[in-house]
Structure formats: structure tokens, C-alpha cells
Design a protein around this nucleic acid. Structure first.
Lengths: 138, 138
DNA sequence: TTGCTCCTCACGTCACGTGAGGTGGC
DNA sequence: TTGCTCCTCACGTCACGTGAGGTGGC
């Protein structure tokens, strides 16, 4: 079992322990395992992936932590779905929850699409600028 | 002449008067024209473009306002260059300043390149997710 | 036992948001 | 003259940074 401590998790995901504790405080991460007051936090691979996903949405799409909270809650909703799934949820219920998550995915896709266009334009503008500066320098 | 007031500039660039005043306070924008204490700020097309550029670098590349300050100072350096240029700067001087700006442009290009890759990956992952959800819904 | 990393307050900082109270131009 | 937008403090907020002082596991 790969039990990570907070410093190791921070190093792997390129953030800080402070940020991880703050995200826990906001209910975005961990805290699932009850923990004796004052004892060390531990994390698994799933936590690392979740944290990276949160940071991607934060940095690349510019989502606030409040918006990430909504997304996280939808994801938890999906985790509940998985339980129901294996427990034998009916078709109607599956579609219901899938439709709910689809709303967030489409919202994020639109944001990502717009950002991608803007970033491509910026990249091209910078490349052209480099070209011109290169010609001056010779 | 198109003299914009702060509210109009904010509306056009998709930000707020508060942000524009803050950027001026940090020396990122305007304040070039001296202004009687308490009188209205005015802006031109050039200011609008500069503000949009600053916001692009902030949002798309994730630069801090301190980093934007450095970039802005390099740009001002280039503005000085333009004066010298028309005033007949010599080749060596032109190359010198161009080389200085090139450093920032290359740094930004590398950042933009990395971000573009990450954003493409995120976009593809979201698109695949939408696909799967669509199949469940039918 | 000695470091190292961890813990919990709690104040500081960056990038603004948001009134409070007042003045200026179509 | 009446609105509307502007002005300057100045305190509030979001997302953490940064010590202060203390405890816990290889």
C-alpha cells in the first residue's frame, strides 16, 4: 500500500502542504478517513489524482475553489452512482445522474475550447514576435 | 479622438474599474498623463490594447502582477527604443534592446507551449468523458 | 536520542471586491 | 437641476504564505 504523507503528496503534485490542508478545510479533498486530533494525514494514489485534477481545472480553466467545490460534489455524486451501479441501479437512475454530470462537463468543455483558441492566438503572436526580434538581432 | 473613461475601458476589456486603478497603482498602466487630484482618468485605444495584453498574460500564462511588471518595463524599454529608432539609433543599440526583450518572449513562449499541451490533454479528456456520458444517456 | 516531517493556531500577503461619503461633467 | 459616472479612502475577501511553538514516527 502506498500511503503518502502530506509533504510527499505536495511534492508529487507540485503544490504545498498548506494548500492541501486548505483544500481539506474547504471540503475539496481528503478528510474522508477520520484522524485522531494532531496525528498525521495520509493519502493514496486516488487522492493524488484528484488533487491534480482540481489543480488542472483551477489553473487551466481558471475555476474558483467555490466552483471546484460544485464539481467535486458532482464527482462524489458519481462515486455514489458507482456504488448504486454495482448494487444494481436501474437504467432511469443511471441516466439521471449521468445527465447531471454532463452539465458540468459541457460547461468545462466550452471553457476549455475558448481558452484553447485564445492560447493558440497568444502562442502565434509570441512566435511572430520572436521572429521579428530574431531578424533584428540577425 | 476616442477618450475613454474608466468605466467604458473596463466594460470593453471585460474587467472592473477597481482592477484598472489597482494596476495603475502598481505602475502597470496609465498614470502617464498627469491628472489633477480628484479629476477623471482618461484612456486611449493604446491603453485598451495594453490592458488586454496584460490580462491575457495573467489569465492564460498565470503570470503574477509582479511578473507582469517586469514585462511591462521591458515593453517600456521598447517604447524608448522606438524613439531612439526614429532618432537614428545605431545597429548595436537596436540589437542590444531586441535581445533583452527576446528573453521575455522566449520565456513566455515556453510557458504558452506547455500550457497548450496541458490544455489540449484536458480538452481531449473532457471530450472523451462527454462521449461516455452520452452513451449512458442514449 | 537526534533529525526530520508533521501538527495547529494565527497573522501576513496578493489581487482585487465592496461599500461610505463626496465631487464633476453631459 | 437631476442622474450617472467618477473620485478617494478603507475595510473585507479569497487563496494561500509564513513563521511560532509543539508533538510524533523512522
Amino acid at each position: 500500500m502506498t500511503a503518502l504523507r502530506i509533504g510527499e503528496l505536495a511534492r508529487r503534485t507540485g503544490t504545498t502542504p498548506r494548500t492541501i490542508r486548505y483544500y481539506e478545510e474547504l471540503g475539496l479533498l481528503g478528510s474522508g478517513d477520520e484522524r485522531a486530533a494532531g496525528s498525521h494525514r495520509t493519502y493514496g494514489e486516488a487522492d493524488a489524482e484528484r488533487l491534480e485534477e482540481l489543480m488542472r481545472l483551477r489553473d487551466l480553466l481558471g475555476l474558483s475553489l467555490d466552483e471546484l467545490k460544485e464539481v467535486a460534489e458532482a464527482e462524489e455524486h458519481r462515486a455514489v452512482l458507482r456504488e448504486e451501479w454495482h448494487g444494481g441501479a436501474d437504467e432511469a437512475r443511471r441516466r439521471e445522474i449521468a445527465a447531471e454530470i454532463l452539465v458540468y462537463v459541457e460547461r468545462q468543455l466550452e471553457l476549455a475550447g475558448r481558452r484553447r483558441v485564445e492560447l493558440d492566438e497568444l502562442y502565434d503572436a509570441l512566435a511572430a514576435k520572436r521572429e521579428r526580434l530574431g531578424e533584428i538581432i540577425g
